[in-house]
Design a protein around this nucleic acid. Sequence first.
DNA 1: GCCTTGACGTTAG
DNA 2: ACTAACGCCAAGG
Length: 114
Amino acid sequence: MSKTNTNDFYQKVYEIVARIPEGKVTSYGAIAGYLGVESGARMVGYALNNYNSADLGFYIPAHRVLNRLGQLTGRGHFEGDTMRERLEQDGVEFVEEYTVNMEKHFWTPYELED
DNA sequence: GCCTTGACGTTAG
DNA sequence: ACTAACGCCAAGG
């Protein structure tokens, strides 16, 4: 009875985000597509918004999840410029004030297969 | 129970 | 190449 509930979907999102390598970024759509929900990009954003570190018990680098253009669309949910600062610490190259070099740092969950 | 909103993405003009 | 509109699905009002 492994039914893909929304809560299960969120859980998978957290697991994937937690595995994003340092210096790499991915997109909401990439995660959604990997989970089999191509149209669930917004749900990924919802998952991160609902995310509570206390519930999971492990930290997830939500700042490494951007939209498909590499823009830090979720920066408003971080404190100040925390999101951008975190990415810079990871060594991510920016092409705009709030846009990273997607071509250079893009990463997909499929690379987890290894 | 209907309507609006949103950490998105694709297609059309 | 740029902008506008629609589709998507869940949560909150």
